[in-house]
């Protein structure tokens, strides 16, 4: 757990991520998740020093291969890599060149020929990281693949919650928004249920993934039910760019029925945390007063992102190149 004055038993059961890649939360055990969070605490301290650098990944090459635009996640990874003294390389590929030019497989193989130690991949297709992991020797870190998973986001969300609430087990956590298309949702559901939280998901029925209850969550389209006595409320972006088809009539109507306003928040616990993976659509899934209000930890999430990503990079870099996941 998070207490720092105690010395941690060095014979702890899990002291490594015994896997080559981080493709998703689905494959992680609760112990591995706790390991990442514990390591992230130490990493967070590095960011408070005058010299925000440690030599842990010195001489390692990390490529940030982003097929989708992203400032926040890419910057966060870049800072994390540099704080660990790794050599970073950013490749941003516009969607048009994907259509016209090299396949993902060929791009990756060409990169691989230059021996990067790790590739951080963000891509519009679910399963792109799995595909790369089969082709490349480098460690692959999933920075978001299609609608599938965004594991470092879920890890930093959990870290942020754990900082305040000390634990995740037993907390009522409500996730509200475009559930169908959200990779953040899937990663969070896996992580929070593995660590024993009581997860409620909420949105219009048109945006429910099939068989959502089979994921071990309570699903409802009534916002008040989800919000009542919640310890944490996570809002998901209404993903305008992924949508075609009539999921709901208008943004105005969405806000009226599902948007998080101060009034709606009152049903939650008095020390509720308001979270959002960003970027926000103010006035759609979240009212400005809530986003900027005292219960919002949205900026903490961003700060914690660097520490969590440092932890992931560090823990994966130590694994052997050819070692299979244990």
């Amino acid at each position: 757990m998070s207490s720092t004055s105690q010395e941690i038993d060095p014979k702890q059961a899990v002291t490594a991520l015994r896997r080559k890649d981080l493709l998703g939360i689905a494959e992680l055990s609760p112990e591995e998740i706790e390991l990442v969070l514990d390591t992230a605490e130490a990493m967070k301290e590095v960011g408070t020093r005058p010299i925000k650098k440690v030599p842990a990944l010195r001489g390692k090459t990390v490529v940030n291969l982003f097929f989708e635009p992203s400032t926040r996640t890419r910057t966060s990874f870049e800072i994390a890599e540099k704080r660990l003294s790794a050599d970073t390389l950013n490749i941003a590929i516009g969607t048009s060149s994907v259509v016209k030019g090299e396949t993902l497989a060929d791009t990756a193989l060409n990169l691989e020929a230059m021996s990067p130690d790790m590739i951080v991949l963000r891509h519009a297709s679910s399963g792109a990281c799995h595909m790369l992991s089969r082709i490349c020797r480098s460690a692959i870190i999933n920075a978001g693949d299609g609608m599938h998973e965004h594991p470092t986001q879920a890890l930093l969300d959990a870290f942020t919650i754990r900082e305040r609430k000390k634990k995740l087990a037993g907390l009522k956590i409500a996730i509200i928004g475009d559930l169908l298309h959200s990779r953040v949702l899937r990663s969070n559901i896996h992580l929070l249920t593995k660590l024993g939280a009581d997860v409620w998901v909420c949105g219009p029925p048109t945006l429910f993934p099939t068989d959502i209850r089979r994921f071990g969550v309570t699903a409802t389209s009534v916002v008040d039910e989800a919000v009542r006595n919640a310890d944490v409320i996570m809002l998901l972006r209404i993903q305008l760019e992924r949508m075609e088809g009539a999921y709901f009539p208008s943004l105005r109507e969405y806000f009226r029925v599902f948007g998080m306003t101060e009034e709606r928040m009152r049903l939650a616990k008095s020390d509720v945390m308001i979270m959002h993976p960003g970027p926000m659509n103010r006035g759609v899934e979240i009212a400005s007063e809530v986003a900027d209000g005292p219960y919002s930890v949205i900026l903490d999430q961003v700060a914690n992102g660097v520490a969590v990503r440092m932890a992931v990079l560090y823990l994966l870099a130590g694994g052997a190149e050819h070692e299979e996941a244990a």
Binding site: M43, A56, A311, Y314, A320
Partner: peptide, 18 residues
Amino acid sequence: LYRDDLMRHAVGPQPLVR
């Protein structure tokens, strides 16, 4: 994070960072 033997183990876990 400052050890000189961090990345040298072929197998084995990264030491726990506190």
